[in-house]
Design a binder for these strands. Structure first.
Lengths: 292, 292
DNA sequence: AGGCAAAATGTAAAAAAGCAACATAAAATT
DNA sequence: AATTTTATGTTGCTTTTTTACATTTTGCCT
């Protein structure tokens, strides 16, 4: 998969595109809600370009035409929320640099995860999760322990029995009481965390199924039954935020979502209604921004 | 105002509507993906009705026209989950959709945080952090508590004295021992979490400086000295990718990075020590692994 | 049953939106 | 400066949606 999401592509075009493309991208980004509903004539007028330019722009963004472009924008709005940007913030160069650095890093991390994550593996993992009697999530270190807790959080909401351990001793103890019905998620960016490697080995001895979210070449990856690649690019600046967090979050989102879908429509139908009613999607008041 | 989403209304029509409406509703429900993209001529043909009937049908469903109807269908597809798809749909397509949904949502959330976060506020907050004697981070709820821990993680690495509490009682206790040198970060998606609001109030009474990362209109926002906008509807994240997570992470990244830059080179020394201490522990002491 | 109003649906033509083909302008390259 | 390439605009055509009106169906009353 080499595709980027539209928002990202729009941003790229807003920076790198030609004159007309830049103006268009800016107009669209500044008000996605509007852009997703307006006819291209309006859009063209606002951006000061001609209508076919809009069509061409959509195509160069990877869409089949304007319709598909709007379709995707609508979906972005649905998931990301309805946001209006009345007055774009003006920043000085220094501030913009920081914001861009972080945002670009985050976007790149998600992109990377998106490109390297194999959905058939995710599906297999989700199936394990659905059939597991008990799910244990092990993670340690800044990013990975955060991921472990997050995974617990997500799966717990689906009614699954799940526990996360970020402490090495607890991980060992937990793995010692695993059985054939157990599923172990082992999260480690390095894939070298000893307590996690050992916990996986022990859990496996007791018949548990094991999934590693880690560096594919690492010891942990070898130890586990299944591996979902999670690689953190080494950061040049030490104090710079580790964009890898976003990758991990993304992978966890994928697993949680796939698992949710697999659990079954009956449960989800209710949840979907709740969400939609809360999100105000059904409201005929499009100007109102809603959160996500 | 309608209280049900389109899919529900479609189901109602499929059961109660007139002949043509029933057929239409069935066709649409049987393949929402198709219906959301196909021209009404196709739809009309499939359902064996005339084109204006489709338009009228959309109107009676509360939409302004066919376009808006399709717009909403697109959003339902993004939000509502894959079980809305007809069975014969290929696996790959479903997979691609999950990935797209999560990635697009994440990207949109980051994009939005990027555009709405005011760097002058972040700079001010960073300066508070640098000058604080003690930093407390309070958060509760899935996303916010995660954010609190993450904030602790990040600021700790910069050599700052920081503690995170996700427990209401601990938050109160902590706030009771705040003083003029204290800085409190209060993270809450809703901005209504009572323990956090009260903790902020108490801490402020003792002279602490307070920063809320929350819904700008909320009680918490009013209580705190500074507010960084972070909006997320509380209960919508039942099973869907909560794009808001990415926003929060992004905001935290900005704060941490800005703070780091403000502290300057001395930060690097602290980080270097952490890294050394971790690499030493990594292999030799399995009880305290690192996985960063 | 037959007839009549009301609702539902269909037909055909107009309006709107999107697009393709070609023309022109800008830019890069030589 | 000439030439090629690329980007953008103009015009008119196609598809899609909608309006206005005609026709059919349905339910109801005598």
């Amino acid at each position: 998969m080499t595709t980027t999401d539209i928002v990202n592509r729009l941003r790229i075009w807003a920076a790198d595109g030609s004159k007309a493309e830049r103006r268009l991208a800016e107009i669209i980004l500044s008000d996605i809600e509007y852009a997703s509903r307006a006819p291209i004539a309006d859009l063209a007028l606002r951006a000061g370009v001609s209508e076919p330019t809009v069509t061409r722009f959509c195509r160069s963004l990877g869409c089949e035409g304007v319709r598909e472009f709007k379709f995707k924008l609508a979906q972005v709005l649905a998931i990301g929320g309805l946001y209006l940007f009345p007055e774009p913030l003006v920043r000085d160069e220094r501030d913009a640099r920081v914001v861009d650095a972080v945002a670009d890093g985050a976007a790149a991390a998600i992109q990377r995860a998106r490109d390297t994550t194999d959905m058939s593996t995710v599906n297999a993992v989700a199936e394990m999760a659905v059939n597991a009697g008990q799910i244990c999530v092990f993670g340690s270190g800044g990013v990975s322990s955060l991921g472990a807790v997050e995974m617990q959080n997500r799966l717990f909401r689906l009614g699954l029995s799940v526990v996360a351990h970020t402490d090495g001793q607890m991980q060992r103890m937990q793995s010692a009481v695993c059985d054939k019905k157990s599923l172990v998620f082992a999260i480690s960016a390095s894939g070298q965390a000893t307590s996690i490697i050992e916990s996986v080995r022990v859990a496996r001895q007791y018949g548990a199924r094991t999934v590693a979210i880690t560096n594919p070449g690492s010891d942990l990856a070898k130890e586990a039954e299944v591996c979902l690649p999670f690689v953190i690019a080494p950061d040049t600046q030490l104090y710079k935020p580790t964009a890898g967090r976003y990758s991990l979050l993304f992978i966890i989102d994928l697993i949680a979502m796939t698992t949710a879908e697999m659990i079954g429509p009956s449960v989800l139908e209710g949840l979907r209604r709740i969400r939609i009613s809360l999100s105000g999607l059904n409201m005929s008041d499009p100007g109102r921004p809603v959160g996500d």
